[in-house]
């Protein structure tokens, strides 16, 4: 029956969790320690690379618009954008 099967699966899963939990806890603890170690190394890395990082031109870094001012041929906005602005008229 569905209920018994479901209960059986649930109990089985809980047994697995109960058996596995010391192992699970130690694995979680191990990962947390390793992450903390990487975090410390990363802080040290950022300090270490700062002088060479500052030599990189701003134009090459993230959040930079790779474009120069241009002579515009037309300042007119398109018909469909004009219509969008009209939607917001009082």
């Amino acid at each position: 029956m569905i209920e018994n099967t479901s209960a059986g699966v649930l109990i089985g899963a809980m047994n697995l969790l109960a058996v596995g939990s010391p192992l699970l806890a130690s694995q979680v603890s191990h990962v947390a320690t390793a992450d903390q170690k990487v975090e410390k190394l990363n802080l040290a890395s950022l300090k270490s690379i700062e002088s060479t990082w500052l030599k990189v031109p701003m134009a090459c870094k993230a959040r930079n618009f790779d474009a120069s001012p241009v002579e515009l041929e037309s300042k007119a906005i398109s018909f469909h954008i004009q219509n969008i602005y009209k939607l917001f008229e009082a």
Binding site: A34, L41, A44, S45, I49, K55
Partner: peptide, 9 residues
């Protein structure tokens, strides 16, 4: 786990 000593030119 590594320590990076400089940003690549």
């Amino acid at each position: 786990p590594t320590l990076l000593t400089q940003f690549p030119g």
